[in-house]
Write a protein that binds this DNA or RNA. Structure first.
Lengths: 293, 293
DNA sequence: TTCCTGATGTTTCACGTGAAACATCGCCTA
DNA sequence: TAGGCGATGTTTCACGTGAAACATCAGGAA
């Protein structure tokens, strides 16, 4: 399944990164085509381009915006290898679709000469860089870069300027049931909440609970640790109940001293701590007197 | 100084906001001019446009990028009221400057018909929306919107989708000495660090200390509370040093008991706690025997 | 088979940001 | 002048994010 790095690794992820960044930079051996307006009907999506989740609402918004102001950011196109009169979308399919919906006749475009692998990588990278990407989409982008081009998490992290663990954590979100992933997509859960659920026993149930109650990520992490610890109170696991003998002894000593005396035995062993609270220096003298005998 | 809202408030901040957002929307009564390439020499900066801090490095970067790929995001221009053959920059002066540095002959532009106040507001808003804006620049934008058009913090916050206190907090940064503001601009301090210094007695000195030691915002907040608390160590304010007498007493009792005995006196009063650590049940019996006398 | 190393999986929480909560100011009206 | 209210000033910290630290896995070499 994974196509081994031909153009991908040969050119390096970071080089392709630069092609996509806000101000893509043409490689020296890649003559720059002048920006131009291209008729919409001469543009076609690349069949190999990663399928993206196009929310209808977002597409509508974008179409409305384009209807009023045109396409602000140009598409990145390459000549169609099979038809010199048409172009293939490398980046900007969403804009192209919205432009059609807005019934524009032409869109601004940058023409580049990419081979198949480069085009695919550029498309994926450009998609990852979108500001309005949700965590699932971002994770899918990382997965695509790794699965299709054999990049390691480390390589992707370096190219995109994120930590390797950040990449790993986002990827793990893709292990969640679709239902939970959808909650991330539509904003009911954040990436942090969802991440806590990756190793949980019932991610769907917990996800719904977290969303319904508006719990924080810390709460989610605690809930996700499992029903077993949750069925015991924190108190009972760290402070075992004092037995009756210890409590009686505390009472006797408190009475004898006229001060509050507590005995805190460490669980499992024989050691512990006796604590005496004094109210004034006379009482402290009293304690010292008795302990010095 | 503040020009009272004529077009500004009449049209509403949010309406102008939409003009600038990623996909600016033309008002119904404002016919949309087709996108076009405009010769650089026919474009002039608006003398009333807010002066922006153009880092040479950033301008170089942008010029290099433009040299390779052209201007990706079009300028927003309006016809020059005094010369029908030229245009005035409403938004995008930085791009225009970089394009000239890159020796481009023409740039992509959107032509709009704004009156003076609208043009100024659009320029400020567009500048605020820039992704690479530092906190000081952002604050300056808010201040401009308020001072030049009489908008309140509340109004600005609503239009930009931020809380009123966020607006206020950023504005307060502008009260800092230039030296501290510069540290924010060049990244030595974050907005949070700087904010903590607004009411500090020596913001410059503290700012340098925070930056040099890489302190967190919490640390900065604590430091900024004043030199009085800062001159005492945190330990001394919560755990006063035990005096020699107390330590000697602890030693005596520990020796007499054959267990670790500590005396923790509460500051300022006469009360406190005596703690005895026992290793086994025999020692516990020993303690009880002595305390029951 | 064991060991080593690169790669990946997982947990935990410090961080700066943004805003809630509170405090203060300034102006206008009764 | 006092009170009310809109506007602004200030403090504090909960939040989700991102990554450090640790754990585990997988594959290859000795």
């Amino acid at each position: 399944m994974a196509r081994k790095p031909s153009g991908g690794l040969g050119r390096g992820l970071s080089a392709l990164m630069a092609d996509v960044s806000q101000e893509p930079e043409a490689a020296p051996d890649r003559p720059r085509r002048a920006d131009q307006m291209v008729p919409v009907e001469r543009i076609f999506p690349n069949p190999d381009q990663p399928r993206r989740h196009f929310t209808k609402e977002r597409l509508d918004d974008l179409a409305n915006s384009i209807r009023e102001k045109g396409v602000i950011q140009p598409l990145i196109l390459r000549k169609n290898p099979r038809d010199d009169d048409t172009y293939e979308i490398v980046a900007g399919e969403r804009r192209w679709r919205a432009a059609q919906q807005a019934q524009l006749h032409e869109v601004p475009a940058i023409i580049r000469e990419y081979n198949d692998t480069e085009a695919l990588e550029v498309a994926i990278i450009e998609n990852i860089q979108r500001a309005d990407l949700n965590a699932i989409e971002e994770a899918q982008g990382y997965r695509d870069l790794m699965n299709r081009f054999g990049h390691t998490q480390e390589k992707v992290s370096e190219a995109l300027g994120k930590s390797r663990s950040h990449i790993a954590n986002l990827l793990r979100l893709l292990n969640l049931p679709d239902e939970v992933q959808d909650m991330v997509i539509d904003g009911a859960l954040t990436a942090g909440h969802a991440r806590a659920l990756v190793t949980a026993e019932d991610p769907i149930g917990l996800g719904k609970q977290i969303a319904a109650k508006g719990l924080s990520v810390r709460d989610a992490e605690r809930l996700a640790k499992g029903p077993k610890p949750a069925s015991k109170s924190a108190k009972s696991s760290t402070k075992p109940e004092k037995d009756a003998d210890t409590r009686a002894l505390e009472g006797d000593l408190s009475a004898a001293m006229g001060m509050k005396v507590t005995i805190d035995h460490k669980p499992g062993g024989e050691s512990g701590v006796v604590t005496i609270r004094y109210a004034d220096l006379d009482q402290l003298d009293d304690i010292c007197g008795k302990l010095s005998v």
